[in-house]
Amino acid sequence: MSDLSGLRRGQSYYEATARSRISGLLDSNSFQELLGPADRLTSPHLEPLGQPCSFNDGIIIGSGKLHGLSVLIASQEGGFMGGAVGEVHGAKLTGLLERAVNEKPAAVLLLLESGGVRLHEANAGLIAISEVIRALLSTRAAGIPVVGLIGGANGCFGGMGIVARCCDTLIINEEGRLGLSGPDVIETTMGVEEFDSNDRALVWRTVGGKHRYLLGEVQHLVEDDIEAFRATAINIIDEVQSPCLEPLERSSELQKLTLESLQQEHLDLSRRLENYGHCQDGTEIWSEMCIDDPEKLPLMDIPRFFKAVENNI
């Protein structure tokens, strides 16, 4: 393992805490936290259930600079209750998205790592996620791009999986997972025949970063390196900021919701269901995409993976 880490140039996104992801992504020392730990905005709903609280309630929010441009940023801490969303956690995120409408940053970066609703405060968490969705789409309607980053150990699931797909664009690493119902939830409810959550390879073929990239569910697949996430985010935002580009010349990933853009998405999703709806496994879908040796994709490093699929996406 130490050999591997020696090869890596930067810092693993997967292993980093929510706070160190922020400091690695933004220009150094530019982060200004909003409602930080000293404000002690903890969840009041955990103590009665004998659960320890956290001074950040599992999410760090604030402002900073990315390549000199002002951004707002939120980072979910997967280590605390799996990054699950409760009343305070959700309200911090909603507040940040609403602040963006007033402050007009170059972008909002959402570092998503969450199992979805926090069951200890389930009703408040579900409503909070719905509020996040509405706030996020209002932020986009105000012309501010929202970029989602996924790549932590807890993945991005439940209602936050829907939130992720409401962003303009997503960046994921190979280790990142994105879905709705976690494999363990499906196994517990529907049985191990439906989904064996201990089959790690199956889990990654179903909800992992490479598959999500091939499907078009995420737009950017990067190495597990905070620097790679940073470079990709900078590219996305620079493009938005560029005064030379007319709105129509911008990459299609950053556009307001319009009837045309949603009709196009509708067509894409309909085709996906039509083409791959019968498939039982990621490898079957990749095979339908005419990728050679689809069973080898999970083993490839990122450069080899891109080479193997470059003609198919």
Partner: peptide
């Protein structure tokens, strides 16, 4: 709750409806 739905990216389909 099904593997097939997850395989296709059901969260993206629900997000589409939301959008």
């Amino acid at each position: 709750l099904s593997l097939k739905d997850e395989l296709l990216g059901i969260n993206g389909y629900l997000a589409h409806l939301v959008k």
